[in-house]
Amino acid sequence: MKKEFNIPIAFTTDVNAAAYGEYVAGAGKGLSSCVYYTIGTGVGAGAIQTGSFIEGFSHPEMGHMIVKRHPDDSFEGSCPFHRDCLEGMAAGPTIEKRAGKKGQEVAEDDPIWTIEAYYVAQAAYNTTLMLAPDVIILGGGVMKQRHMLPKVHHEFEKLVNGYVKIPPLEQYIVTPALEDDPGTIGCLALAKNELQKL
């Protein structure tokens, strides 16, 4: 692309871009750090500390962290690499495989959602203990189910069990302030950063 277009170009992952969008203009605005998860067709996450992505030899693959199986969950997992990692147990397609229908067709009181919340809460729990970000943002199609966030809060509180002091959950574990647009806004913000370097 640089060969064809003589313009500044920034590269990152889709979920990093969404994290950056929320960091500069959404739920992470004005904070020093944030972690953004997308829970949809797959599960991925981006982490930002003082304006920079947290990464080393490569970008993080938080969607493939190992999670403890819910006692009532007999689903074997759908990740082709790890079977029952976070993505294998919590991505949108696993809901459909468990229920035999798409997530938006599953009733709010179906026990599947408690199982789903348990896995998502584990991601937030692990993130809290490893990175202690100012905010954890849960995006993606699964989190468009408005009843999911309170369930995640409930499961998260049980997992933490008073071990660490955390901010009020309504401010700490949230859905995207930018709704469907954090990735687009993040890309534009990253492009703007490149232009400012000229």
Rank of each mutant, 00 (worst) to 15 (best):
I66H: 08
F81H: 08
R83V: 09
G63K: 01
E96R: 14
E61V: 09
P93M: 06
F75W: 08
L86C: 10
I95A: 06
G63A: 07
K97Q: 14
E96H: 07
I95P: 00
D84G: 02
G77Q: 02
S74Y: 07
R69K: 13
A90G: 03
F75L: 08
M89A: 13
C85Q: 08
D73P: 01
G63T: 03
M89I: 02
H64V: 07
L86K: 11
R69T: 13
A90W: 02
M62N: 04
P71N: 01
H64L: 08
K68R: 10
D72A: 11
R83T: 07
H82K: 04
H64N: 10
E96Y: 00
C79W: 03
E76F: 07
D84Q: 12
R83A: 10
C79G: 06
E76V: 15
D72T: 08
I66C: 13
A90S: 13
G92E: 10
H70K: 02
V67L: 08
H64T: 04
G63V: 06
D72E: 12
L86A: 14
H70V: 09
S74E: 15
D73M: 06
G88W: 01
P93W: 00
C85I: 07
M65R: 09
M65C: 13
K68F: 10
M89L: 15
G77C: 03
I95R: 01
G77A: 03
L86I: 07
R83E: 12
R69L: 07
P93R: 01
E61T: 09
M62E: 01
E76G: 09
H64Y: 11
M62C: 07
R83H: 14
F75M: 08
A91K: 03
P93Q: 05
I66R: 12
E76Q: 12
S78G: 11
G88E: 11
D72L: 10
M89R: 04
G88M: 11
F75G: 05
F75C: 07
F75R: 02
F81C: 05
H70Y: 06
R83S: 09
I66P: 10
K68W: 02
E76K: 13
K97N: 11
G88T: 07
E87N: 15
G88P: 01
T94G: 08
P80T: 06
E96D: 09
P71E: 00
M89P: 01
S78E: 10
K68Q: 14
F81R: 08
F81Y: 12
M89V: 00
E96S: 13
G92C: 04
M89K: 08
K97S: 11
T94P: 06
P80I: 06
S78D: 11
E87Q: 15
H64Q: 09
G92H: 01
E61N: 09
H64C: 12
E87G: 14
T94N: 07
E76I: 15
G92V: 01
C85S: 12
H70Q: 04
E87D: 14
H64F: 11
T94L: 05
K68D: 15
K68N: 15
G88N: 08
M65N: 12
K97F: 03
R83K: 12
T94C: 13
S74F: 09
G92D: 11
D84T: 06
I66Y: 03
M65I: 14
P93V: 03
D84I: 05
G77P: 02
P71H: 01
